[in-house]
Lab assay of single mutants.
Amino acid sequence: TTVHVNGVTYHFPNPEEAKKFVDRVVKEAGLTVEVKGNQWDVE
Rank of each mutant, 00 (worst) to 15 (best):
E43A: 12
T9N: 06
N14F: 03
G7P: 00
E17R: 00
V5M: 10
G37M: 04
P15E: 14
H4Q: 13
K20S: 08
K20H: 09
V25I: 14
K19V: 06
N38R: 01
L31Q: 08
D23A: 04
T2R: 05
F12N: 00
K27M: 13
T1S: 07
V42D: 10
T9W: 07
V33E: 14
V25K: 03
G7E: 02
E28V: 06
G30E: 07
E17G: 01
E16N: 05
E28S: 04
V5Y: 13
P13T: 12
G30M: 07
F12C: 06
V26F: 13
Q39V: 13
D41F: 15
V33D: 13
H11S: 07
F21Y: 03
F12S: 00
V3G: 00
V42P: 09
E16H: 07
E28R: 02
K36M: 15
N6L: 10
T1V: 15
N6M: 09
E43K: 13
A29S: 12
V5H: 08
R24D: 11
V26S: 11
E34C: 12
G7Y: 01
T1A: 10
P13Y: 06
A29W: 14
V35H: 11
F21I: 00
V42N: 10
E17T: 05
G7I: 03
V5F: 13
L31S: 11
E17A: 07
G7S: 03
H4G: 04
D41E: 14
W40F: 10
K19N: 06
T2H: 08
T32Q: 09
D23S: 03
V25W: 10
V26L: 14
G30K: 03
V42M: 08
A29V: 10
A18N: 00
L31K: 05
G37F: 14
D23T: 03
Q39L: 09
T9F: 08
V8L: 08
F21N: 00
Y10F: 09
A18I: 01
V35F: 13
G30A: 07
K27N: 10
D41S: 09
E17H: 03
G30I: 06
P15M: 13
N14E: 04
V22M: 08
W40S: 08
P15D: 12
F21C: 02
V33T: 12
Q39D: 14
G37W: 15
T1Y: 13
V5A: 04
D23F: 03
N38K: 03
P13W: 08
F12M: 01
D41L: 15
P13N: 12
T9G: 04
V5W: 12
K20P: 01
T32L: 11
V35M: 07
H4V: 14
R24K: 13
D23W: 02
N14D: 11
D23Y: 03
V26W: 11
V8K: 10
N14V: 01
V25F: 12
A18P: 00
L31W: 15
V8R: 07
H4W: 14
K19H: 08
V42G: 09
D23C: 11
K27H: 10
K20M: 07
F21A: 01
Y10C: 04
V35E: 11
A29I: 10
W40A: 09
P13I: 10
Q39I: 12
T32I: 13
T32P: 07
K27A: 12
N14A: 03
V5C: 03
N6D: 08
V25S: 03
V33F: 09
G37S: 03
V25A: 05
N6K: 04
Q39T: 09
P13G: 07
E43P: 10
H11L: 06
H4T: 14
N38M: 03
K27F: 09
F12H: 00
E17K: 01
G37V: 14
H11R: 04
E43Y: 13
G30L: 07
P13K: 10
E43M: 14
G7A: 02
G37H: 12
Q39G: 14
V26R: 07
K20N: 09
R24S: 13
V33H: 08
D41Q: 13
Q39M: 09
A29C: 14
P15S: 12
R24G: 10
E17F: 01
G7M: 02
P15W: 14
V33I: 07
Y10I: 06
H4Y: 14
A18E: 02
P15I: 13
H4N: 13
V8P: 00
A18S: 02
K36A: 15
T9C: 10
V22Y: 12
T1I: 15
G7D: 03
V3D: 00
G7C: 09
W40Q: 08
R24N: 11
N6A: 08
V26M: 13
V8W: 06
E16C: 03
W40D: 11
A29Y: 14
E34G: 08
H11C: 15
P15Y: 15
E28H: 05
R24Y: 14
K20E: 13
E17M: 06
N6Q: 06
P15V: 12
K19P: 00
K19Q: 13
V25M: 12
K19W: 12
N6V: 02
V3N: 00
Q39F: 07
P13S: 11
T9M: 12
T1R: 03
V35S: 04
V22C: 11
T1E: 04
P13D: 12
K19S: 08
A18L: 05
K36F: 15
G7L: 01
Y10G: 01
P15C: 09
E28A: 04
T32A: 11
K19F: 06
A18Q: 01
E28Q: 06
N6Y: 06
P13A: 12
N38Y: 05
N6C: 04
V5P: 00
E34F: 03
G30F: 06
T9S: 10
G30Y: 06
K20F: 04
N6F: 10
V26Y: 12
H11D: 04
H4M: 14
K20A: 12
K36N: 15
V3I: 09
A18V: 02
H11P: 02
K36R: 04
V5N: 02
V3P: 00
L31A: 12
V26A: 11
K19D: 04
E28L: 05
E16S: 06
Y10A: 02
Q39H: 14
V42S: 10
V22P: 01
